[in-house]
Design a protein around this nucleic acid. Structure first.
Lengths: 208, 208
DNA sequence: AATTCCGGAGAACAGTTGTTAACTGGATGA
DNA sequence: TCATCCAGTTAACAACTGTTCTCCGGAATT
């Protein structure tokens, strides 16, 4: 299937990745709509014109960043809401997974949270589409649970969106607490756990 | 108490408000971190240097916008979670109130959603502080309900944050559906209503 | 071995940016 | 009435922006 790329293609992908990394670093302290093309090339160490060999515009780069940040996350989301273990275990595991992901890829999380409602329309659109995919996957996973019997497709999707949004909120809270002392992160863990517990409680009484 | 302002102070407040209005309009299509000082003065129709008579920087202007957008919202939030009527009525009323607010002040809502995780630290901080005030007020309101008997202060605050975040998510959804046909807004109404219902359901079984 | 391809460099374009300094003229308070 | 105040102006600064066109040199193809 994959015949090894030539030296040329490999080098191109390498600089492209350098663009993505540099941009992500610069975006820790600003929004995408204020990210300048020259700013990025300067950080990468190439001529401004080299940018156009990889991206049409900074908005285009932003969409690529969305794919990098969220594209590889789908397996994890599925694991997060998987049906193994009892309710309390699953919640603890989900919160733990989120915390670990934020600690490992803080810049990605920050980027998504920031640009979800940011000033660049194509990027907002890309994030919206990916989050909708997440919600659909969560719904499919929820449907497997025997607790989903009697639920309409629509109600399951409603719940899935609730979970996805809650995950993002939690991730954002962990992000804010990233540089703070340990007990601040512990506080976020307890808060998120109880919120998920309450939602799950409502879920189990939905059909009453 | 308030002795009528002189012509001078009145004129100053007038141009200051013009700055806020112009900035809010410009921020519909970009983030605060990319908003230029000259851009704003041009929109107001005034010399660039006049900006400094009112604000230290665009970040300062942003903080002022936070106060304008959220400062006057506290009474409404209290009404939203007020204890009159049964659960279903309260939820319907809350969603209706949010929809109406978004329709009336779309730019304000967009600004808050965008800059809550935006690239300007002082503005993020200001929004965070205001939302925390909201959560505290919601908690105080929830505590009045007889359903709150046996709840710890901490759990009540947890629930309050859940409600506040949910309000923002809902407002953001209404905002996206603002230019869409009526039935799209209807869909958002139904989604938000059911999500609130599920949360309320979890709330009523919290002490089981 | 000869030719084409193509990622990146260099220079130049007209416009833009934030910030400074010194000023004007009408409102304000003595 | 006169001196003071102060919101807004004008002019100028160096630094920056996105984009175009032309060129180079090594990889890829024939």
């Amino acid at each position: 299937m994959s015949h090894t790329l030539g030296i040329r293609q490999a080098q191109k992908q390498k600089t492209r990745q350098a663009f993505l990394d540099a941009a992500l670093a610069l975006l820790e302290e600003q929004s995408l709509s204020s990210l300048g093309l020259r700013e990025v090339t300067r950080a990468v160490g190439v001529a401004p014109t080299a940018f156009y060999r990889h991206f049409r515009s900074t908005a285009d780069l932003g969409v690529a960043l969305v794919d990098e940040a969220l594209g590889s996350l789908h397996p994890m989301v599925r694991t997060t809401v998987s049906t193994t273990g009892d309710s309390a275990e699953r919640i603890a595991r989900a919160v733990e997974l989120i915390a670990r992901h934020v600690a490992e890829y803080p810049a990605h999380v920050r980027f998504i949270a920031r640009e979800r409602h940011g000033g660049v329309q194509p990027v907002r659109e890309a994030i919206r589409a990916q989050l909708h995919r997440f919600a659909e996957e969560v719904r499919a996973e929820l449907a497997k649970d025997r607790e989903a019997e009697g639920w309409s497709e629509d109600d399951l999707l409603m719940l899935a969106h609730l979970y996805v949004d809650q995950m993002l909120i939690t991730a954002s809270l962990f992000l804010e607490a990233l540089e703070a002392p340990e007990d601040e992160r512990e506080r976020v863990t307890r808060l998120a756990t109880r919120q998920l517990r309450l939602i799950t409680l409502g879920r189990s009484h939905w059909l009453d």
